[in-house]
Amino acid sequence: MPSLRSFLLASFAIAGALSAECEGDVSIESDGDVSKLDNCNSWKGDVIVGEGVGILSIPTLQTIEGALSIAGATGLTSISAPMLRSISGTWTMQELTILSSVSCASLTSVGNINWVTLPALKALDFTSGVTKCDEVLITDTILTSLEGINLQTATNFNINNNKYLKEVNVALGNVSNAVNIEFNSKGVNVAFPDLVWAKNITIRDAGSVSFPKLESVNGTIAFINNTFSDASFPELTEVGGSFAFNSNSQLSNCSAPNLETIGGTFQLANNTKLTNIDGFAALTTVDGSVDFSGSFTNATLPALDDVRGGMNIQTTEEFDCTEFDNYKSDGVVKGSGYTCEGKLDEAKSSSGGSSTSGSGNSSDETNSAARAGVSIVALFAACAAMLVL
Score class of each variant (00 low, 15 high):
Pro212Trp: 11
Asp330Met: 12
Val377Arg: 02
Phe223Asn: 07
Val190Asn: 08
Thr131Ser: 15
Ser247Thr: 12
Leu274Pro: 12
Ile98Ala: 06
Ser349His: 03
Ser145Ile: 03
Gln94Glu: 15
Gln250Pro: 01
Glu238Asn: 12
Val209Ser: 02
Phe228Ala: 04
Ala105Thr: 15
Asn367Cys: 03
Asp205Gln: 01
Asn158Gly: 10
Thr284Asn: 11
Gly52Asp: 07
Gly331Tyr: 14
Glu235Cys: 10
Asn248His: 00
Leu379Thr: 08
Leu251Lys: 10
Cys254Tyr: 08
Gly240Glu: 01
Val136Asp: 03
Val239Tyr: 00
Glu29Asn: 11
Asn41Tyr: 07
Ser252Ile: 01
Lys166Pro: 02
Trp197Asn: 09
Val168Tyr: 02
Gly24Tyr: 11
Thr356Leu: 13
Gly373Tyr: 01
Gly219Met: 13
Asp205Cys: 09
Ser101Cys: 01
Ala206Ser: 11
Asn225Leu: 05
Ile224Lys: 14
Ile79Pro: 05
Val374Gln: 12
Lys132Asp: 06
Ile113Lys: 06
Ser375Pro: 06
Ser176Asp: 13
Ile113Ala: 10
Ala281Ile: 15
Asp31Ile: 04
Thr356Ser: 15
Asn184Met: 07
Val110Ala: 03
Leu274Tyr: 01
Tyr327Gly: 10
Asn246Tyr: 03
Ser362Arg: 04
Val239Lys: 00
Gly353Glu: 13
Thr356Pro: 07
Gly52Trp: 11
Asp140Ser: 13
Asp194Tyr: 09
Glu260His: 05
Thr265Cys: 04
Ile149Thr: 03
Leu124Phe: 15
Gly337His: 14
Lys213Gln: 13
Leu236Ala: 10
Asn200Lys: 10
Thr141Leu: 10
Ala372Asn: 09
Ala385Pro: 00
Ile203Ser: 01
Ser375Arg: 12
Asn258Asp: 12
Ile55Arg: 13
Asp291Cys: 07
Asn180Ala: 12
Glu318Ala: 12
Ile313Gln: 08
Gly264Thr: 04
Ala120Lys: 10
Gly294Ile: 06
Glu147Thr: 11
Gly309Ser: 08
Leu283Thr: 06
Ile64Ala: 07
Asn189Thr: 02
Phe233Thr: 08
Glu238Ile: 12
Asn367Ile: 05
Glu23His: 09
Asn225Lys: 07
Thr300His: 07
Ala178Cys: 06
Ala382Ser: 13
Trp91Asn: 00
Ile58Trp: 09
Gly309Trp: 00
Ser11Asn: 01
Thr220Trp: 04
Asn112Thr: 13
Thr141Trp: 04
Asn39Ser: 11
Gly24Ala: 02
Val175His: 04
Arg308Met: 15
Phe223Cys: 14
Thr92Phe: 02
